[in-house]
Design a binder for these strands. Sequence first.
DNA 1: TGACTGACGCCGG
DNA 2: CCCGGCGCCAGTC
Length: 107
Amino acid sequence: MSPEEYREQVLQLVERIPAGRVMSYGAIAEYLADVSGRCSARQVGTIMARYGGGVPWHRVVNSSGRLPPGHEQRAAQLLAEEGVQLRAGRVIMQTTSWYPEDHTSGR
DNA sequence: TGACTGACGCCGG
DNA sequence: CCCGGCGCCAGTC
């Protein structure tokens, strides 16, 4: 799998995150590891930083519920509009995190 | 080829 | 809860 395709996998997965829910970089990496064979929260973070502009990037946070450095304000704004509850600027992962269900769609 | 870096994650102090 | 250290993967210098 080429780097470009891997980027697409990440971006496409981010697009499927439902409004009002979020996924951590690690969860994304973990999920993609199953379909692409690779995984690395770091890599996902790098990809989001460089190519996340076209997807709901604000629905991606770190495992602690922290918002992306340098974009906390923007992300908090967008998340608030989707009804996501924040506690001290952090997403409450315990109740807001999401993970794909499909295991039937092959892919 | 080796060192450095980064929208990460986990553990220990 | 904050901070530091170490592991991690890939891209860049």
